[in-house]
């Protein structure tokens, strides 16, 4: 009965989880705070929309191209990070968000203000898939992304990125080419974000410039920080909780964004590492639970 609704919420939450995992690589590992991630999101969604409606490709044939293009454009958009850092970079990313939105809104090639309509649902073997099918596709992409992120977090690359994030000069003195790793982070991040954009575009069926506004970027960064910067579990958790939370506040419809904003501020201040980040509230709870379990098992 409420199946479709829950599925649809879960689909969007999964899409955002993929995006936040991408943001996590950039902001969590290399500490390059991006307040313009909606721009990268828009690039994925728009590229896919254009490939489908103008070039007539299908979901599956357009997907690899879109991801490749997202990655390339992401690296290009990341180039300013070689010149500026810290707060200047934050503002540069905000700027990128507005510029991308302005371009999509003002150039007819990108549909302009009328947006791009008619991004059909993907098909498998000529058969159209329903909501459930699309959820499964999204979920499998999410699992794939988690796997890749997990594997990546075990590599030397992640260590180098974290070192770059902690102290760029020190990292350089250790022989890490920080420029390469910054770009590497932008590339990975925009790849995942582009993937999320593709999935989002298909599930809505249309894209409009205003769907990728600065408010979305704020939401994305909030999701990541809420869950726990620099951790995979935190990224996924943050995306799910912050996307689903306003839905629970539906019974106080009129006040829900007020509560949401206030809670966001409180939680970030009280739990700066995120609820599920290292040393976060839930993280400690779970650790304690696990420990207790281990103890009881030992006793028995």
């Amino acid at each position: 009965m409420t199946f479709g609704y829950i599925l649809s919420i879960a689909t969007f939450a999964s899409i955002y989880a993929i995006l936040i995992l991408g943001l996590n690589i950039l902001t969590g590992y290399t500490k390059q705070v991006s307040l313009g991630h909606a721009a990268f999101f828009a690039i994925g969604a728009y590229t896919q929309a254009l490939l489908i409606t103008k070039a007539g490709l299908t979901f599956w044939s357009a997907l690899p191209l879109t991801i490749l293009l997202s990655m390339i454009i992401g690296v290009v958009m990341g180039l300013p990070s070689l010149r500026v850092s810290d707060d200047f970079l934050v503002l540069t990313t905000i700027g990128l968000n507005f510029i991308v939105m302005g371009i999509t809104e003002y150039f007819d090639f990108f549909g302009g203000a009328m947006g791009i309509i008619g991004i059909t649902m993907p098909t498998i073997g000529g058969k159209s898939i329903g909501t459930t099918g699309y959820f499964l596709i999204t979920l499998s992409f999410l699992l794939l992304t988690i796997c890749i992120c997990y594997l990546f977090s075990k590599t030397w690359g992640r260590l180098a990125m974290e070192a770059t994030g902690e102290d760029e000069d020190a990292a350089q003195s250790l022989g890490i080419n920080t420029s390469i790793y910054k770009m590497y982070a932008f590339a990975l991040s925009s790849t995942f974000t582009g993937l999320a954009g593709v999935l989002w575009a298909h599930s809505i069926g249309s894209v409009f410039p205003r769907n990728f506004s600065f408010e979305m970027s704020v939401l994305f960064l909030s999701m990541l920080v809420f869950g726990g910067l620099g951790t995979i579990r935190g990224a996924v958790f943050g995306a799910f909780v912050l996307y689903i939370l306003p839905e629970f506040f539906r019974f106080i419809e009129n006040y829900r964004m007020l509560v949401y904003g206030g809670m966001l501020a409180m939680i970030v201040i009280l739990q700066p590492n995120g609820i599920l980040g290292r040393g976060g509230l839930l993280d400690r709870c779970i650790l304690r639970l696990v420990k207790k379990k281990a103890e009881t098992q030992e006793i028995s």
Binding site: Y5, I9, F12, S203, I204, S206, N211
Partner: peptide, 13 residues
């Protein structure tokens, strides 16, 4: 739009 699409499902189902 994403909220609209989820909520429409909720209204219908």
């Amino acid at each position: 739009p994403d909220q609209a699409s989820a909520l429409t499902r909720k209204l219908i189902e």
